[in-house]
Amino acid sequence: MSKGLLFSIEEFALNDGPGIRTTVFLKGCPLRCAWCHNPEGWLPEPQLMRKKERTETCGFEMEASDLAARLLRDRDLFAQSGGGVTFTGGEPLMQGPFLLETMALLQDVHTAVETCGHAPEPLFRQVAEAAGLILFDIKLADPGLHRRWTGVDNVLILRNLAALKACGTPFVARVPLIPGVNDSVENMRATASLLEDAPSLQRVELLRYHKTAGAKYPMLGLDYRPGFDTEALPQVHDCFTEKGMKLLIL
Protein backbone atom coordinates (compact mmCIF):
# COMPACT_ATOMS: atom_id res chain seq x y z
CA MET A 1 0.00 0.00 0.00
CA SER A 2 1.57 3.30 -1.01
CA LYS A 3 1.22 6.74 0.43
CA GLY A 4 0.66 9.86 -1.61
CA LEU A 5 1.30 13.51 -0.93
CA LEU A 6 -1.71 15.71 -1.62
CA PHE A 7 -2.29 19.39 -1.24
CA SER A 8 -6.04 19.59 -1.71
CA ILE A 9 -9.21 17.64 -2.35
CA GLU A 10 -11.88 19.77 -3.92
CA GLU A 11 -15.53 18.82 -4.16
CA PHE A 12 -17.95 19.94 -6.85
CA ALA A 13 -15.21 20.60 -9.37
CA LEU A 14 -17.02 21.73 -12.49
CA ASN A 15 -14.30 22.13 -15.06
CA ASP A 16 -12.38 18.88 -14.71
CA GLY A 17 -14.38 16.42 -16.75
CA PRO A 18 -17.97 15.24 -17.09
CA GLY A 19 -20.59 15.40 -14.33
CA ILE A 20 -19.94 16.40 -10.75
CA ARG A 21 -16.41 15.51 -9.78
CA THR A 22 -14.05 15.57 -6.87
CA THR A 23 -10.61 16.76 -7.86
CA VAL A 24 -7.53 15.49 -6.02
CA PHE A 25 -4.43 17.67 -6.15
CA LEU A 26 -1.16 15.71 -5.93
CA LYS A 27 1.92 17.60 -4.85
CA GLY A 28 5.06 17.79 -6.95
CA CYS A 29 5.58 18.98 -10.53
CA PRO A 30 8.43 18.71 -13.05
CA LEU A 31 7.42 21.95 -14.79
CA ARG A 32 7.71 25.53 -13.60
CA CYS A 33 5.21 27.33 -15.79
CA ALA A 34 5.63 31.07 -15.42
CA TRP A 35 1.87 31.57 -15.02
CA CYS A 36 1.29 28.68 -12.60
CA HIS A 37 -1.60 29.43 -10.26
CA ASN A 38 -0.91 26.54 -7.91
CA PRO A 39 2.76 27.03 -6.95
CA GLU A 40 2.13 25.08 -3.76
CA GLY A 41 1.94 22.07 -6.08
CA TRP A 42 5.57 22.32 -7.23
CA LEU A 43 7.61 20.74 -4.44
CA PRO A 44 7.16 17.03 -3.69
CA GLU A 45 7.26 17.68 0.05
CA PRO A 46 5.11 19.46 2.64
CA GLN A 47 5.82 23.16 3.05
CA LEU A 48 4.58 26.06 5.13
CA MET A 49 2.07 28.56 3.80
CA ARG A 50 1.71 31.82 5.67
CA LYS A 51 -1.90 32.92 5.60
CA LYS A 52 -3.35 35.99 7.22
CA GLU A 53 -4.68 34.26 10.31
CA ARG A 54 -2.10 31.55 10.76
CA THR A 55 0.63 29.55 9.11
CA GLU A 56 -0.47 26.21 7.76
CA THR A 57 1.35 23.20 6.48
CA CYS A 58 0.57 22.63 2.83
CA GLY A 59 0.77 18.98 1.86
CA PHE A 60 -0.57 15.94 3.67
CA GLU A 61 0.06 12.24 3.25
CA MET A 62 -2.70 9.76 2.61
CA GLU A 63 -2.76 6.03 2.06
CA ALA A 64 -4.27 5.05 -1.28
CA SER A 65 -6.94 3.01 0.54
CA ASP A 66 -7.92 5.95 2.78
CA LEU A 67 -8.09 8.32 -0.14
CA ALA A 68 -10.17 5.85 -2.15
CA ALA A 69 -12.54 5.29 0.79
CA ARG A 70 -12.99 9.01 1.19
CA LEU A 71 -13.66 9.49 -2.55
CA LEU A 72 -16.04 6.54 -2.68
CA ARG A 73 -18.30 8.22 -0.13
CA ASP A 74 -19.58 10.31 -3.05
CA ARG A 75 -20.11 7.46 -5.50
CA ASP A 76 -23.90 8.01 -5.29
CA LEU A 77 -23.45 11.58 -6.46
CA PHE A 78 -20.97 10.53 -9.16
CA ALA A 79 -23.39 7.88 -10.42
CA GLN A 80 -26.35 10.29 -10.36
CA SER A 81 -24.53 13.03 -12.27
CA GLY A 82 -22.30 10.97 -14.55
CA GLY A 83 -19.29 12.37 -12.72
CA GLY A 84 -16.29 10.92 -10.95
CA VAL A 85 -12.84 11.73 -9.69
CA THR A 86 -10.15 13.81 -11.35
CA PHE A 87 -6.49 13.72 -10.36
CA THR A 88 -4.44 16.82 -10.99
CA GLY A 89 -1.67 18.67 -9.24
CA GLY A 90 1.13 19.47 -9.45
CA GLU A 91 1.69 16.63 -11.83
CA PRO A 92 -0.10 13.49 -10.71
CA LEU A 93 2.22 11.24 -12.71
CA MET A 94 5.04 12.31 -10.38
CA GLN A 95 3.38 9.86 -7.95
CA GLY A 96 2.67 7.13 -10.51
CA PRO A 97 2.34 4.04 -8.29
CA PHE A 98 0.12 5.86 -5.79
CA LEU A 99 -2.02 7.23 -8.58
CA LEU A 100 -2.48 3.83 -10.22
CA GLU A 101 -3.21 2.13 -6.94
CA THR A 102 -5.85 4.70 -5.97
CA MET A 103 -7.48 4.53 -9.39
CA ALA A 104 -7.70 0.75 -9.15
CA LEU A 105 -9.40 1.04 -5.76
CA LEU A 106 -12.05 3.38 -7.16
CA GLN A 107 -13.66 0.45 -8.96
CA ASP A 108 -16.51 1.58 -11.19
CA VAL A 109 -16.08 5.31 -10.52
CA HIS A 110 -15.12 7.29 -13.61
CA THR A 111 -11.58 8.68 -13.33
CA ALA A 112 -9.87 11.49 -15.15
CA VAL A 113 -6.22 12.50 -14.95
CA GLU A 114 -4.94 15.92 -15.83
CA THR A 115 -1.33 15.81 -16.88
CA CYS A 116 1.30 18.03 -18.43
CA GLY A 117 2.49 14.93 -20.29
CA HIS A 118 6.04 15.21 -18.99
CA ALA A 119 6.40 11.70 -17.58
CA PRO A 120 8.14 8.43 -18.46
CA GLU A 121 6.43 6.84 -21.45
CA PRO A 122 5.61 3.44 -19.90
CA LEU A 123 3.98 5.10 -16.89
CA PHE A 124 2.09 7.48 -19.12
CA ARG A 125 0.72 4.57 -21.17
CA GLN A 126 -0.31 2.71 -18.03
CA VAL A 127 -2.18 5.73 -16.65
CA ALA A 128 -3.78 6.51 -20.01
CA GLU A 129 -5.07 2.96 -20.22
CA ALA A 130 -6.40 2.95 -16.65
CA ALA A 131 -8.15 6.32 -16.83
CA GLY A 132 -11.58 7.03 -18.29
CA LEU A 133 -10.45 10.43 -19.51
CA ILE A 134 -7.16 12.28 -19.87
CA LEU A 135 -6.99 16.05 -19.61
CA PHE A 136 -3.82 16.72 -21.55
CA ASP A 137 -2.26 20.15 -21.12
CA ILE A 138 -0.54 21.65 -24.13
CA LYS A 139 1.26 24.82 -23.21
CA LEU A 140 3.30 25.64 -26.28
CA ALA A 141 4.01 23.84 -29.54
CA ASP A 142 7.52 25.24 -30.02
CA PRO A 143 10.15 23.27 -27.99
CA GLY A 144 12.39 26.30 -27.39
CA LEU A 145 9.58 28.51 -26.15
CA HIS A 146 8.29 25.62 -24.11
CA ARG A 147 11.62 25.39 -22.33
CA ARG A 148 11.75 29.13 -21.81
CA TRP A 149 8.29 29.39 -20.22
CA THR A 150 7.98 26.06 -18.38
CA GLY A 151 11.54 25.01 -17.67
CA VAL A 152 11.49 21.89 -19.86
CA ASP A 153 11.19 21.27 -23.59
CA ASN A 154 8.21 19.39 -24.96
CA VAL A 155 9.88 16.42 -26.65
CA LEU A 156 8.65 13.89 -24.11
CA ILE A 157 5.28 15.62 -23.93
CA LEU A 158 4.72 15.34 -27.67
CA ARG A 159 5.78 11.70 -27.65
CA ASN A 160 3.21 10.99 -24.92
CA LEU A 161 0.59 12.94 -26.83
CA ALA A 162 1.18 10.67 -29.80
CA ALA A 163 0.85 7.65 -27.53
CA LEU A 164 -2.38 9.04 -26.12
CA LYS A 165 -3.83 9.54 -29.60
CA ALA A 166 -2.93 5.97 -30.43
CA CYS A 167 -4.27 4.32 -27.28
CA GLY A 168 -7.84 5.47 -27.78
CA THR A 169 -8.63 6.73 -24.27
CA PRO A 170 -10.91 9.76 -24.59
CA PHE A 171 -9.01 12.96 -23.98
CA VAL A 172 -9.46 16.69 -23.74
CA ALA A 173 -6.67 19.03 -24.79
CA ARG A 174 -6.31 21.98 -22.44
CA VAL A 175 -4.45 25.09 -23.48
CA PRO A 176 -3.95 27.92 -21.02
CA LEU A 177 -4.19 31.29 -22.74
CA ILE A 178 -1.28 33.36 -21.49
CA PRO A 179 -1.11 36.89 -22.89
CA GLY A 180 1.93 37.36 -25.10
CA VAL A 181 3.25 33.87 -24.35
CA ASN A 182 1.18 31.36 -26.27
CA ASP A 183 -1.93 33.18 -27.45
CA SER A 184 -0.59 33.91 -30.92
CA VAL A 185 -2.39 32.59 -33.95
CA GLU A 186 0.80 30.72 -34.97
CA ASN A 187 0.93 28.78 -31.72
CA MET A 188 -2.78 28.00 -31.86
CA ARG A 189 -2.43 26.74 -35.43
CA ALA A 190 0.53 24.59 -34.47
CA THR A 191 -1.38 23.26 -31.45
CA ALA A 192 -4.36 22.40 -33.63
CA SER A 193 -2.02 20.50 -36.01
CA LEU A 194 -0.71 18.45 -33.08
CA LEU A 195 -4.26 17.39 -32.32
CA GLU A 196 -5.19 16.28 -35.81
CA ASP A 197 -6.10 12.68 -36.55
CA ALA A 198 -7.23 11.97 -33.01
CA PRO A 199 -10.66 10.32 -33.00
CA SER A 200 -10.54 10.09 -29.20
CA LEU A 201 -10.15 13.87 -28.77
CA GLN A 202 -13.35 15.01 -27.07
CA ARG A 203 -12.71 18.69 -27.31
CA VAL A 204 -10.22 21.49 -26.87
CA GLU A 205 -10.49 23.78 -23.84
CA LEU A 206 -8.91 27.20 -23.83
CA LEU A 207 -8.35 28.38 -20.27
CA ARG A 208 -8.02 32.11 -19.98
CA TYR A 209 -5.22 33.36 -17.74
CA HIS A 210 -6.58 34.80 -14.53
CA LYS A 211 -4.93 37.42 -12.43
CA THR A 212 -5.60 35.47 -9.27
CA ALA A 213 -2.68 33.27 -10.33
CA GLY A 214 -0.18 35.20 -8.26
CA ALA A 215 -2.15 35.10 -5.03
CA LYS A 216 -0.44 32.13 -3.41
CA TYR A 217 3.18 33.11 -4.14
CA PRO A 218 3.57 35.49 -1.19
CA MET A 219 2.12 32.84 1.14
CA LEU A 220 5.00 30.56 0.08
CA GLY A 221 7.62 33.29 0.39
CA LEU A 222 7.94 33.51 -3.39
CA ASP A 223 7.81 36.48 -5.70
CA TYR A 224 5.41 36.37 -8.61
CA ARG A 225 7.32 37.81 -11.55
CA PRO A 226 6.02 35.82 -14.47
CA GLY A 227 7.76 37.86 -17.18
CA PHE A 228 4.69 38.69 -19.24
CA ASP A 229 2.13 41.42 -19.02
CA THR A 230 -0.39 40.10 -16.49
CA GLU A 231 -2.68 43.07 -17.12
CA ALA A 232 -3.08 42.28 -20.82
CA LEU A 233 -6.08 40.30 -21.98
CA PRO A 234 -5.17 37.12 -23.85
CA GLN A 235 -6.12 36.85 -27.51
CA VAL A 236 -8.53 34.12 -28.37
CA HIS A 237 -7.92 32.45 -31.73
CA ASP A 238 -10.07 29.57 -32.71
CA CYS A 239 -7.96 27.42 -34.98
CA PHE A 240 -9.78 24.32 -33.84
CA THR A 241 -13.40 24.32 -34.96
CA GLU A 242 -12.28 24.70 -38.60
CA LYS A 243 -10.54 21.36 -38.17
CA GLY A 244 -13.73 19.79 -36.83
CA MET A 245 -12.73 19.92 -33.17
CA LYS A 246 -15.09 21.03 -30.43
CA LEU A 247 -13.95 24.09 -28.54
CA LEU A 248 -14.81 25.38 -25.09
CA ILE A 249 -13.40 28.60 -23.73
CA LEU A 250 -13.31 28.81 -19.95
Binding site: N15, K51, K52, H210, T212, A215, K216, P218, M219
Partner: peptide, 24 residues
Protein backbone atom coordinates in the same frame (compact mmCIF):
# COMPACT_ATOMS: atom_id res chain seq x y z
CA UNK B 1 -13.65 32.04 -4.52
CA UNK B 2 -12.99 29.78 -7.44
CA UNK B 3 -11.54 30.23 -10.85
CA UNK B 4 -10.82 27.27 -13.11
CA UNK B 5 -8.22 25.11 -11.43
CA UNK B 6 -7.84 27.48 -8.50
CA UNK B 7 -9.69 28.17 -5.35
CA UNK B 8 -8.99 30.03 -2.16
CA UNK B 9 -10.49 31.68 0.88
CA UNK B 10 -11.14 35.26 -0.07
CA UNK B 11 -10.24 36.75 3.31
CA UNK B 12 -6.79 35.16 3.20
CA UNK B 13 -5.73 36.89 0.03
CA UNK B 14 -3.64 40.02 -0.22
CA UNK B 15 -5.56 43.13 -1.02
CA UNK B 16 -4.48 43.33 -4.65
CA UNK B 17 -5.84 39.85 -5.30
CA UNK B 18 -9.01 40.60 -3.44
CA UNK B 19 -9.41 43.57 -5.76
CA UNK B 20 -8.78 41.40 -8.81
CA UNK B 21 -11.56 39.10 -7.72
CA UNK B 22 -13.92 41.95 -6.94
CA UNK B 23 -13.32 43.33 -10.43
CA UNK B 24 -13.70 39.94 -12.00
Amino acid sequence: VRVWGWSGYFVELDECYQDHIINR
